[in-house]
């Protein structure tokens, strides 16, 4: 019971953070990181865990708008990166998710000497996607949607760039299966890619995903990110 209670609390915290990010993406405000003022104790632990789940997207509005993040948001973010280094045997998506957070920290926290920001760090490898079927590829890329950022290259983004048709098929599959979060994540990647089939109807597709699944702030976040990035531009 306690575990499921904690899990529900964490889910709620992730949803709240996602809502904050959606608001910032829509309004151009700072990410406020509501409810994470206290970063010590139980509440702080919960906040850090929630930030870990949300990953680099917590500070996406500042990456896209090239504006500084609020200090308290940056503090929680940095603590999360430091608190959860991936284990040696971690799954690729865990390693990449952490790498994405470190990269965001480097972009926004560069002056902080001695922090992970100063460590350019070796990029993980993306070999696990080499033979990925299009459904698996789409699932993995949707989980790693925080890596879909204009102007930012990495091995995972290069895989995505090389397989726009497979990712488009995965988007259709996810919508058909009403997996709105996967569809939204895939749609965000597709927004940045060349070679997406015109017949996909990506823009209306993302609007449909928002209509059907947008009451979940994590879905809304991906749709809003895609919208914001459509204005910002594709990969360099």
């Amino acid at each position: 019971m306690e575990q499921s209670g904690t899990s529900a609390l964490l889910q709620g915290a992730v949803q709240d953070l996602s809502s904050d990010v959606v608001s910032a993406l829509r309004g151009g405000d700072h990410v406020r990181v509501a409810g994470t003022g206290a970063v010590d104790g139980l509440a702080g632990g919960l906040a850090v865990a929630a930030v870990r789940v949300l990953g680099a997207d917590l500070l996406l509005p500042h990456i896209l708008s090239r504006t500084p993040a609020a200090p308290e948001a940056l503090t929680v973010f940095r603590q999360t990166v430091e608190a959860f280094p991936p284990r040696a045997d971690a799954a690729p998506i865990v390693v990449w998710s952490h790498w994405a957070m470190s990269r965001t920290l480097r972009r926004l926290d560069a002056p902080q000497a001695g922090s992970p920001a100063g460590d350019e760090g070796a990029e993980p490898e993306a070999g696990w996607l080499d033979e990925a079927t299009w459904p698996f590829l789409t699932h993995q890329l949707a989980v790693l949607a925080p890596l879909a950022v204009p102007g930012e290259d990495c091995a995972v983004a290069r895989v995505a760039r090389s397989r726009p048709v497979d990712l488009a098929r995965g988007f259709v599959r996810a919508v058909r299966r009403r997996d709105w979060q996967q569809a939204a994540g895939a749609g965000r990647w597709l927004t940045l890619l060349d070679g997406v089939p015109d017949t996909l109807g990506l823009e209306t597709g993302l609007d449909f995903v928002e209509l059907m699944g947008g009451s979940d702030p994590r879905v809304a976040l991906q749709v809003e990110a895609a919208r914001a990035m459509r204005w910002t531009g594709a990969f360099v």
């Binding site: 098929r169 259709v172 599959r173 299966r177 017949t199």
Partner: peptide, 13 residues
Amino acid sequence: DYLTMWLPVWIDD
């Protein structure tokens, strides 16, 4: 062309 693109998704589903 359209069917070549999307039929695999519908078959999978």
